[in-house]
Simulated assay, not measured.
Amino acid sequence: MRWGPWAGVLLCLSWAPMALVLPRFPDLGSAHVVVIYWAAELGVMQAVALSVGVGYLFLLVFLGALTDRLSAAEHLRPWSWTAVASAVVFTTALNVAIGLVLSAGLVARTDPAGAYALHVGGFVLAAPAAFAGVAFFLAVAVVAFGSPVLPRWSAWLAVAGAVANAGPVGGVTTLVGPWNAGNGVLAGIAAPLGLFVAWILAVSVWWLREPAVPSRPEPVGQPAATRR
């Protein structure tokens, strides 16, 4: 199962460039500032979007391995499926949001008003998607607290992730102020996404450090149908 945690590490590396651009996104309260931003940063964002797109391949591989691992806690299996389904919803919303804001950059020179609308749409999308992030972190916390398939410390990191995902929720009502997806008290979308990546990286490194379990040798000369 080493391919699972290695995919998690590669995912975090390919998504790391987002940490360079998210803090530099302009305030949503000014259409003029948004258009100026995209006139200067389109090339950088295109490179970041390509890196994030490659990372989705590693994400799906990691989630496949995580599903298998979490399912070992049979008494918590509903929570395991909740975690995986929530991760898919959360990251799908991220993918759509990236497409919207990148579209803003492509039309910024010809349609400033449209660029602003697309840019805002990408951030507003993060508000309802934050609830999927809360569900993911709560589910993995329950599994980590209730079984040995994940380390106990990962549950506390997940609790912090659930709290951070409450930050963007106010984006369904306002574009400015502390509680919105663009510049929330908890760093808008940067904190929820950052803790999602941090959780995956920490668990992947822990997973790689686990002692390898040797495969049980097949009995020699015994028919496959009679092996136990």
Rank of each mutant, 00 (worst) to 15 (best):
I189N: 03
P5Q: 01
A144K: 11
A113K: 06
S14P: 01
A198K: 02
V9Y: 05
V21P: 14
D68V: 15
Y37P: 04
L102K: 13
F196V: 05
V185E: 05
A93P: 04
F90V: 05
A49W: 08
T226G: 05
V203A: 04
M1R: 07
P223I: 09
V203R: 07
A144P: 03
N95H: 05
P26A: 10
G8A: 03
L208A: 10
A19I: 02
E41D: 08
F145C: 07
S80R: 13
F136G: 04
V48D: 14
G55C: 09
P223L: 12
A144T: 11
V107H: 04
A144I: 14
L60F: 06
G105Y: 13
T226V: 11
L94E: 06
G53M: 10
G8S: 00
F137L: 01
F25L: 15
P128R: 02
V54L: 14
E218Q: 14
I98G: 05
A139H: 00
V134K: 07
A225F: 07
T173Q: 13
G121Q: 03
V84T: 12
V142Q: 08
V88R: 06
A139Q: 11
L22S: 05
S71V: 13
W207E: 01
N95G: 14
L208K: 00
L66T: 05
W38D: 07
W3N: 03
Y56V: 03
W156N: 05
I98F: 05
S147K: 09
F131K: 06
R109S: 11
G114Y: 01
A108E: 14
G29P: 09
T91D: 00
A126H: 10
W15H: 04
S14M: 07
L50A: 07
P5L: 07
V33H: 14
H119D: 11
L76M: 13
R69D: 03
I189M: 06
F123R: 05
P17Y: 12
P17I: 02
V61N: 02
A187R: 11
E74N: 15
G55D: 02
F196C: 00
A155L: 11
L125C: 12
P23M: 04
A144G: 09
A135N: 09
L13Q: 07
V159F: 07
A93Q: 15
S154N: 03
R209P: 00
P178G: 15
D27Q: 10
A49H: 13
A198N: 04
V101H: 08
L208N: 01
G221I: 12
N165S: 15
D27N: 09
W79K: 12
G194I: 07
V48Q: 13
A202K: 02
S71C: 10
A191N: 06
L157I: 08
T174A: 06
L193M: 10
